[in-house]
Amino acid sequence: MSDHGSHSHGPVTRAGESADDALEHAREAAHGDAGSHGEHGGLGKYLLVFLALCGLTTMSFFTYSAAWPWRDQPQVGWAFMMAVSCTKAMLVILFFMHVWWEANWKYVLTIPAAMMALFLGIMLVPDVGMRNRMVSQERALHMARGSDLRLIEEASAASAASAAH
C-alpha cells in the first residue's frame, strides 16, 4: 500500500520504470531463490533431455522392428507408443519450455487447456464406436471392407504362385 498516498495516475510502478520492467522484477522476485541464470538448468541438463528424447524416439521406433514381441497385437504397440509420446511431450514442456522452473501461473494456463483437450477427446469416443452405424447406400456401395483387402491379398498370392511355376 506504499503508493496509497501518492498521486500517481498510472499503474503502480517504481519511479522511472515501465509496467513491463515492473513485471520483470515481480517475476524475478517470484523465483529469486534459484540464482540469476543457473535457474534454467544449463547445457548439461538440456543435453540430458535431448538424449532422453532420442532414446524415447528409438523406443517407439522399436515397435516397428522385427524384434518387437507383440507384432500380432497392435494395441500393445499403440499403448506403448502413446505412453512414450506423452513422456516425450512432458520432457519438452517441462524443460525446453521451462515450465519446470516457472512460478505457479503455469497451472492457470495449462490446466484449463489440457482439460479442454481431454474432454474433446473423450467426447469423440462415441463417434468412434458409431461411425459406421448410419451409412448411406452410396457409401456402403463404395466403402472398402476387410474382404476387399483379403481379395487383393489372395490375388497377390495366386499370381506369386503362378510365377513360381
Binding site: M116, A117, R131, A144, D148
Partner: peptide, 27 residues
C-alpha cells in the same frame, strides 16, 4: 501461452478427428 493453449485445442481436435476416422473405419 494463451495462443499456445488455443493451439493445443486446435491440434487436439484434429488428432481427435483422426482417431475417430482411423478407429471407426472398417479398413
Amino acid at each position: 501461452w494463451l495462443f499456445l493453449s488455443t493451439e493445443i485445442m486446435f491440434f487436439a481436435a484434429l488428432l481427435g478427428s483422426y482417431v475417430v476416422l482411423r478407429f471407426g473405419a472398417s479398413v
